[in-house]
Simulated assay, not measured.
Amino acid sequence: MSEEITADVIRRYNDVFQKRDVDALDDLIGEGCVIENTDGQRVEGRAAAIAWWRAIAENRAAHFDLEDVHIAGDRAVIRWRYVHDGGSTRGVNLMLVRDGRIVEGLGYAKTT
């Protein structure tokens, strides 16, 4: 897979959270997608992944500030700051894109 395709998918994925365009998730998430969130919770399957990310993007009490995105082949590293009522948390997502869709999202957060 080309880095251009990965970069486009990840750009559109980030737009879901920046613009709260949750309907775009339907075109971005692949079958068998696996998410491991920053608390270690595992979410498996396309429908479950879409529901998980939709709930985060629809939360108007919080938002993500993108700090950096790095693309390498079919993988991406997204560095972010999650701003919420209690302050903010910094972290990264390690993403895997196959056939133009996200099939893995592993989230890690910096703790204080």
Score class of each variant (00 low, 15 high):
Met1Ser: 05
Ser2Leu: 14
Ser2Arg: 10
Glu4Arg: 11
Ile5Asp: 06
Ile5Thr: 15
Ile5Asn: 07
Thr6Ala: 08
Thr6Gly: 10
Ala7Trp: 02
Val9Thr: 12
Ile10Cys: 05
Arg12Ser: 13
Asn14Glu: 04
Asp15Cys: 06
Val16Tyr: 10
Val16Gln: 07
Gln18Ile: 15
Lys19Pro: 06
Lys19Ala: 08
Lys19Gln: 13
Arg20Asp: 05
Asp21Ser: 14
Val22Arg: 14
Asp23Ser: 03
Asp23Ala: 13
Asp26Thr: 13
Leu28Asn: 01
Leu28Arg: 00
Ile29Arg: 04
Gly30Ser: 05
Gly30Val: 15
Glu31Arg: 07
Val34Arg: 08
Ile35Ala: 01
Asn37Phe: 00
Thr38Gln: 10
Asp39His: 13
Gly40Phe: 04
Gln41Ile: 10
Val43Lys: 00
Val43Met: 02
Glu44Lys: 07
Glu44Ser: 08
Gly45Met: 03
Arg46Ser: 06
Arg46His: 11
Ala47Tyr: 06
Ala47Arg: 10
Ala47Asp: 14
Ala48Ser: 13
Ala48His: 03
Ala49Thr: 08
Ala55Trp: 11
Ala57Leu: 08
Glu58Ile: 04
Arg60Tyr: 03
Ala61Trp: 03
Ala61Asp: 07
Ala62Phe: 04
His63Met: 10
Asp65Phe: 00
Asp65Ala: 04
Glu67Pro: 01
Asp68Arg: 08
Val69Ile: 10
Ala72Met: 09
Gly73Gln: 08
Gly73Lys: 11
Gly73His: 02
Asp74Arg: 13
Asp74Pro: 04
Arg75Phe: 13
Arg75Met: 10
Val77Met: 14
Val77Asn: 10
Ile78Tyr: 14
Ile78Val: 15
Arg79His: 06
Tyr82Ile: 01
Val83Gln: 07
Val83Glu: 05
His84Ala: 11
His84Val: 08
Asp85Lys: 15
Asp85Glu: 09
Gly86Val: 12
Gly86Met: 14
Thr89Ser: 05
Arg90Met: 05
Gly91Gln: 04
Leu94Ser: 12
Leu96Asn: 11
Val97Glu: 00
Arg98Ser: 04
Arg98Glu: 09
Asp99Glu: 15
Gly100Asp: 09
Gly100His: 03
Val103Gly: 05
Glu104Ile: 08
Leu106Asp: 11
Leu106Gln: 11
Gly107Ala: 11
Tyr108Thr: 06
